[in-house]
C-alpha cells in the first residue's frame, strides 16, 4: 500500500529528474562556443594545409619534406605544453583545497586524452620525417626515447583514471599520477640541450626566441599551432560534455534501480 505522501514524494523526485535531464541536454547541446571552435578549427586546418603544401617554399636541403614542419611541431607543442600543461594545472587546482572541484579532475582527464592522441601523432609524423631526413624511422636518442616514455606515462595515467574508488579517492589518485607523469615534459623539452641527440634543437622555442626558420615558414607553423589549439578547445568541450552526460546518466540509472526495488513485492 502506498500512502499519498509517498506518491507525492516520488512524483517530486520524477520532476526533479526531468529538470536535471532538461538542463544537461541544454548544456551539452549546440552553443556558440562550440560553433566558433569547430568552424575555426576547420578553417585554420584548411588554411594551414593549403599554405603548408602549396604556398610555402621548399627548403634548400630538405626540399618538400620541410612541409612536415607545419604538422609535426604544432602537434608536439599542443601535446606537451597545451594538453599536458592543462592536465598538470587542473590536477594542481584539484589538489589545492581552495580551488578543489571535480570540474578540474574532469578537465585533467579530458586534456590528457587529447594529449595522448597528439603525442602519438607527434611520434608518427616525427618517424616519417626521420625516415626521409635522417634515413631511419627510429633511433634511441634522448629526445625520441623520452617522448616514447612520455606517451607510456600518459597512457598509464588514463588507465589509472579507470580504476575504482570513491570520487574523492579517484580524483586524488588521478591528480598525483598526473603530476608524476608531468615530470617528463620539461625533460623532453630540454633533452636536445642536455644530451647529444640526432634530433635538432628547437627552432621557435629557442632560449632567446630567435626564429631559425624563414618568416613564411614560421607564420605557417604558428597557424598550425593555432589550428591544433582550436581543435584541442573543441575536443575539450565535447569531451567534457560527455563526462557531464555520463554523470547524469548514471544518476538516473541509480534512481531507476531504487524505484524498481521499491516496486518489487
Amino acid at each position: 500500500m502506498t500512502s499519498i505522501l509517498e506518491t507525492e514524494n516520488s512524483d517530486n523526485q520524477t520532476q526533479k529528474e526531468i529538470t536535471l535531464i532538461e538542463n544537461i541536454l541544454k548544456k551539452t547541446g549546440p552553443s556558440y562556443t562550440k560553433y566558433i571552435l569547430g568552424i575555426g578549427s576547420v578553417l585554420t586546418a584548411c588554411l594551414t594545409i593549403w599554405l603548408g603544401l602549396f604556398i610555402t617554399p621548399k627548403d634548400e636541403h630538405l626540399g618538400n619534406t620541410v612541409r612536415l614542419l607545419y604538422v609535426h611541431p604544432p602537434v608536439a607543442w599542443a601535446a606537451l605544453y597545451l594538453a599536458f600543461g592543462t592536465t598538470t594545472l587542473a590536477s594542481l587546482l584539484w589538489l589545492w583545497p581552495k580551488t578543489r572541484s571535480y570540474f578540474w579532475d574532469k578537465i585533467a582527464g579530458a586534456s590528457a586524452e587529447i594529449g595522448v592522441l597528439y603525442l602519438a601523432l607527434t611520434l608518427v609524423t616525427g618517424s616519417i620525417w626521420g625516415r626521409t631526413t635522417w634515413g631511419v624511422w627510429w633511433t634511441w636518442d634522448a629526445r625520441l626515447t623520452l617522448t616514447a616514455v612520455l606517451l607510456v606515462l600518459y597512457i598509464a595515467y588514463l588507465a589509472i583514471r579507470q580504476l575504482d574508488g570513491s570520487d574523492k579517492t579517484k580524483a586524488n589518485r588521478n591528480a598525483i599520477t598526473a603530476l608524476f607523469a608531468a615530470i617528463d615534459v620539461p625533460i623532453v623539452h630540454f633533452s636536445v640541450l642536455w644530451w647529444n641527440t640526432l634530433h635538432q634543437t628547437a627552432s621557435v622555442l629557442t632560449p632567446g626566441l630567435h626564429l631559425t626558420v624563414p618568416l613564411s615558414m614560421g607564420l605557417t607553423m604558428g597557424l598550425g599551432f593555432l589550428c591544433t589549439t582550436l581543435i584541442w578547445g573543441w575536443m575539450m568541450k565535447v569531451r567534457y560534455d560527455i563526462e557531464l552526460l555520463k554523470v547524469v546518466d548514471s544518476e538516473i540509472e541509480l534512481q531507476r534501480a531504487i524505484m524498481q526495488r521499491r516496486n518489487e513485492p
Binding site: 636518442d141 634522448a142 626515447t145 623520452l146 616514455v149 598509464a156 588507465a159 641527440t197
Partner: peptide
C-alpha cells in the same frame, strides 16, 4: 574491469622498463 586495467598497467610497466633501459644504454652517450 579491474583485472583488465591491471594487465594494461603491467604491460605499460614492461614497456616503460624497456624504454628506460634503451635510454640508459643509448641516449646518455648517443
Amino acid at each position: 574491469r579491474k583485472l583488465r586495467i591491471v594487465i594494461v598497467l603491467a604491460i605499460l610497466l614492461v614497456i616503460f622498463g624497456a624504454l628506460i633501459y634503451e635510454g640508459l644504454t643509448n641516449s646518455i652517450e648517443y
